[in-house]
């Protein structure tokens, strides 16, 4: 993109760009403004002052050079690099030694094959009601860990928002540049082929994502993978129809509402099961019949919450990096 052909001024694309920008080039305007500023400047600095400033700068530069070639400084520099090299090499040696002492992969007597995994395999389906034991593990035995993971996703989006968020303001030149960039030929959104295929694919993608999320406790899948499918569908929609079209159903307010509700529901539901989920206390979430859609206690609902958070996160990260706004 950085390459500009020599006959760029007369090329079709340059003329088209000029037409999009209403006949005036932004870069030219900026340059003209700068030159006007310079010619308007009433009193250029007298040359004597310039000379003094140059001499002062050179003095500072010379002193920095002198200091840099000083014996103590060089010694400290050399010690520093030697120490860092030593530290690196010793860490590598310790790690390699520790790796060589690990038990061989797949042996029956390995410490990973203990009573925990046996218990999961033998009693997992009975205790959680999930046919897919992975779901039973991450959303029942280790549900607290999964809550932390969902919060990690939220934190990632929050930090990206802090770094990249750009408030939409009318008349902001940056905003106008963004809107113009949406109109250029580089954007795939003016492509009828992509739009037609997206219209065909979009319902199937959404259906498949929802299927994977809802059947997380019955078959391989679950909130994380299904949410990733849903997020990819949203990204495809952004690419095909432009972000202003996606913003109708996926904007900052909806992102906040959905993510917050899902995470709060997850925390509350899991807190409830922490209090009543053991010692034969009566709970409204029972494991039910394994294999049915409405079974496995809390797991389908937690899967839905995780799926919503993941879908929102993926599409929000893409849109933020692309446009600086949701």
């Amino acid at each position: 993109m950085a390459k500009i052909r020599p006959d760029f001024e007369s090329s079709l694309y340059a003329r088209f760009l000029k037409w999009v920008r209403d006949g005036s080039d932004r870069l030219d305007e900026d340059m003209a403004g700068m030159q006007a500023d310079r010619s308007m400047d009433p009193s250029p600095a007298p040359p004597e002052q310039d000379m003094e400033r140059v001499m002062a700068e050179r003095k500072v530069y010379d002193r920095a050079q002198e200091w840099g070639s000083h014996q103590g400084f060089r010694l400290r520099n050399r010690t520093y690099s030697f120490l860092s090299l030593f530290l690196c090499l010793s860490i590598i040696a310790v790690l390699l030694y520790a790796t060589s002492q690990l038990p061989a992969f797949g042996r029956a007597g390995n410490p990973a094959h203990n009573e925990v995994s046996e218990r999961y395999l033998e009693k997992g389906m009975e205790e959680t009601g999930a046919v897919n034991l992975v779901s039973g593990m991450i959303l029942d035995y280790r549900a607290f860990d999964t809550l932390g993971e969902s919060n990690v996703l939220l934190t990632a989006v929050l930090s990206v928002i802090m770094l990249l968020h750009m408030q939409r303001r009318e008349g902001d030149p940056r905003q106008e540049m963004e809107d113009l960039a949406d109109q250029t030929l580089y954007e795939p959104r003016h492509d009828p082929i992509l739009q037609t295929v997206t219209r065909v694919l979009m319902p199937m993608l959404l259906l498949f994502g929802i299927y994977v999320v809802l059947n997380g406790h019955l078959s391989p899948g679950g909130g994380f993978s299904g949410g990733a499918v849903l997020g990819a569908a949203l990204i495809l929609h952004t690419n095909a129809f432009g972000s202003s079209s996606t913003r109708r159903f996926m904007n900052m307010r909806i992102f906040q509402a959905v993510t917050g509700t899902a995470l709060c529901f997850y925390g509350l539901a899991k807190a409830y099961s922490f209090f009543v989920g053991a010692n034969h206390l009566p709970s409204i979430f029972t494991p039910g019949t394994p294999g049915r859609l409405f079974s496995a206690g809390l797991i389908p609902y937690l899967n839905i919450a995780v799926g919503l958070v993941v879908a929102c996160t993926i599409s929000a990260l893409y849109t933020l990096f692309r446009k600086g706004d949701l």
Partner: peptide, 29 residues
């Protein structure tokens, strides 16, 4: 198709290799 489209948009010396007809795209825009 999308990759080819981007290539025709940004390749500086594409005209030397193939004949390009970009009029359709511009007219549509």
């Amino acid at each position: 198709h999308l990759i080819a489209r981007l290539e025709t948009m940004v390749h500086p010396d594409l005209g030397k290799e193939v004949q390009i007809d970009r009029t359709d795209m511009v007219r549509q825009l």
